[in-house]
Amino acid sequence: MIGERWALLVVRELLFGPKRFTDLRSGLRGISQNVLSQRLRDLEAGGGVRRTVLGPPASTQAYELTALGNALEPVLVAMSRWGALTPAAPDSEMSNDAFALALKALFVPAPRDGFRGRVRLRLVRDAFDVSVEGVGIDVARAAGADPDLVIEGTEATVRAVLFGRLTLNDAVAAGDIAIAGDRRRAAAFLARFALPDLAAEPAP
């Protein structure tokens, strides 16, 4: 069910909630309509994906993960963490959902004085709420009113700040990132993420 090309990437795009067929294609650059249709049929037949209907204002057909499909999240987080060892080129693009998954993969537990709280990360065409409490992190598609801290920018710019290719102050000065709230807290939030260090990984 998940061994064919694109199958796990389809699951990745559905981890944060249901999507229409057109939204799935937008997040999976390079996939053809026929291949996406086949992968969805395979995943549906295997019990990992089901069809649903998005509510008003537009009642349209969409796809969502079942409990079986959602059980793949730890696999995808581990793959995202592994993939970060060979970072994409600075000018490359990730889908918003791939980036949201990467936040889970690259989160670094910190001492008690590290950032805690909820941040809305507003990317192009989507937004996610990231909640940090001690050693735990939760990432969900944004819902409800804005929290006290909102960071807005393209995925590529936020990624450049996370990985140290661009400072937060420079990104704000250039107008590439906008912050609603305390900039120091925004910097502390972004400092909770780092590339994996193989030397620090526990032995198998």
Results as ranks from 00 to 15, higher is better:
V158E: 05
Q61S: 13
G175R: 08
A7G: 09
F163W: 08
N169A: 12
S26F: 08
R5E: 07
V132F: 03
P90K: 07
L101Q: 13
G17A: 05
A187W: 04
F21M: 05
Q33E: 14
L28V: 11
G134R: 11
A156I: 03
L85N: 06
G144P: 10
A7I: 01
P111F: 00
T157W: 05
A62C: 13
A45Q: 15
G69N: 08
R165N: 03
D97H: 05
A171G: 10
L8H: 05
R81T: 13
R159F: 01
A180Y: 03
G136C: 01
R41M: 11
E155W: 00
Q33F: 02
R125L: 01
F189D: 08
V35P: 04
E73T: 04
A127S: 15
D91T: 12
N169R: 14
V75I: 15
D146C: 04
A200I: 03
L149S: 07
L198C: 04
V53I: 13
E155Y: 07
S59G: 08
V75P: 08
W82M: 12
G181Q: 03
G3A: 13
A45E: 15
P202F: 09
D146V: 03
D182E: 06
L8I: 01
G30F: 01
A145I: 03
A194M: 07
R112C: 07
A45G: 12
D126T: 10
S80Q: 03
F193C: 09
L43R: 12
G144E: 06
V132N: 06
V130F: 06
F99W: 12
R41Q: 15
L14A: 05
T157I: 06
F107I: 09
V139T: 11
L166A: 07
A171N: 11
R118M: 05
P147W: 04
L149I: 03
R141S: 12
V124H: 13
R159Y: 04
D170Y: 00
A67C: 00
D197T: 06
N70Y: 07
Q33G: 04
V172R: 14
R122Q: 11
M1T: 13
G114D: 07
A173C: 02
A156E: 13
T52L: 03
L14W: 03
L149A: 07
T60N: 04
A199G: 14
V53A: 11
R112A: 14
G117H: 09
D170I: 01
A171C: 07
V77M: 10
